[in-house]
Write a protein that binds this DNA or RNA. Structure first.
Lengths: 262, 262
DNA sequence: GAAGCACGGTTCGTATACAATCATACCAGG
DNA sequence: CCTGGTATGATTGTATACGAACCGTGCTTC
């Protein structure tokens, strides 16, 4: 039995959106109170929490009745999740939670390595007190989850940490890119959640905290350096988890470490 | 009670799609022949070709009757375009083509600057002959469009060029990220298409060709360097086009109300 | 003349209905 | 027992229907 509480509080939305038609990046906080949005978040969360496992089929009508809505908004939510690469369609046969391969994850790592040090550096420049608080809150959350061996919670906190750094860097385009990549990596990692031990999570949390300290101390170089270190460390843990046969690290992180132009 | 028979034996199916539910990135070539896909591409193209201008409302029923289909697949296509940041919703009032601001474009530039040199470098390493041919074809297309002053075609060729380099770099995640950013930049630039002159396009094409030459000559350093130079050059042209003064383009919805659809 | 209000038309958000297609089970034949 | 065909149920892809919200217009009222 899947728990899926259809309890969406759709009442508390205010719109101040009329004045300018900004792209979606800027509207994420005040989304429209549609069933589509609710379904999108509910299904995504179910996937990332491991309730829906890779390879599992997503039957529209089941999802609809779980969420107590009709198929129409569910389909629209699924279309977006498909576009994000969390679920994959097979024509006339349905949608399935993506089974990412090791190669996909390595590609995602590479993508993040191209971006995250840059974001960490900028976060050290620009982070506001509220953003710092959000980042630290995510770290604490991750630490708590690690201690009670809550893998899904730990991964979620990690996403929040990286999202916090990204938002603090002041480039929503890049931040959201990293967030989506993290989601897909975590989708993969959830398949290995039985093999994750507490020490792995603790190590990751320590690295997060180190990055956070550098950001708090307004030390961009240290933040970028620690971010690179963290990414290398993540790769090593990934190899230990998945097996490192033919683990070709094609890219040199050093190339990426340089600060992109502006 | 959720049934969800997850255990459909994936191994016994001969369809390659079944065996591995890869993310959408890898399936772009064999997309499902749905009306949704058709609508998605048609509407996107209409936006990027300037048929639907920024700020213009997108009435679902009009689009549906234009495409000779019902509203359902149109809505799903629009949901994706919204997620990509090309169109923006106003709750209960409809969707509008995004009016990006100068700041948005600068953010997109920054994002691309973090990624494109990396892709150019990798393309110089890994590009296959077919990929090289695709890149050169895009360049030639862009040159032809420039000479006949076809701005939309020129921008489209530019997107194809950058997409070609991205694909050749062998990281679809990053490549698609850049492609989507380019689309949004071009959406903005189409608003200034009257101010684009042939010389600007020629310059851009020359820079594209320089990057291409470096890739062909398998010179990663030169490719990355020329990519950085190109991005700086694009920024300068952008400043010349848009103006350095801070003309904030906040618009009210009333100003938005142009003629619906095209 | 300006402000407020009612009303109708338009469009969205959602639900439901229908048809095409796929999977599975069953049956017949070898 | 195995193979192949067919029927039936399930699920998708698409179309249509319907209620609710919003905008504009015209009237009323001050």
């Amino acid at each position: 039995m899947i728990v899926y509480e259809p309890c969406f509080d759709l009442t508390c939305y205010q719109f101040s959106v009329y004045t300018m038609l900004t792209p979606i990046d800027q509207l994420t906080l005040e989304k429209a109170p549609t069933f589509r949005e609710a379904a999108y978040h509910a299904i995504k969360q179910a996937i990332l929490d491991g309730l829906l496992e890779p390879g599992q089929p997503l039957v529209e009508e089941r999802l609809a009745e779980m969420l107590q809505i009709s198929r129409t908004p569910v389909r629209e939510a699924l279309a977006i999740l498909e576009h994000e690469g969390l679920i994959a369609p097979v024509y006339r046969r349905g949608l399935f939670v993506c089974k990412l391969t090791r190669e996909h994850v390595i590609e995602l790592f590479t993508a993040n390595e191209a971006v995250e040090p840059f974001l960490a550096r900028r976060a050290a420049h620009y982070a506001s007190p509220e953003q710092l608080a959000a980042i630290e809150s995510a770290i604490r959350d991750g630490e708590a989850c690690a201690e009670r061996n809550d893998i899904a919670g730990f991964l979620r906190a990690g996403r929040l940490f990286h999202a916090g750094v990204g938002r603090a860097a002041g480039n929503l385009t890049l931040a959201r890119f990293v967030e989506r990549n993290e989601e897909r990596v975590d989708l993969f990692l959830m398949g290995y959640r039985k093999a994750v031990d507490v020490e792995m999570m603790r190590t990751s949390n320590r690295e997060h905290r180190a990055i956070y300290r550098a950001i708090v101390q307004r030390d961009p170089d240290a933040a970028a350096r620690l971010s690179i270190y963290h990414l290398q460390s993540v790769r090593e843990r990934f190899a230990a988890l998945v097996g490192d046969d033919d683990q070709d690290t094609v890219l040199s992180l050093n190339e990426q470490a340089k600060e992109p132009i502006a």
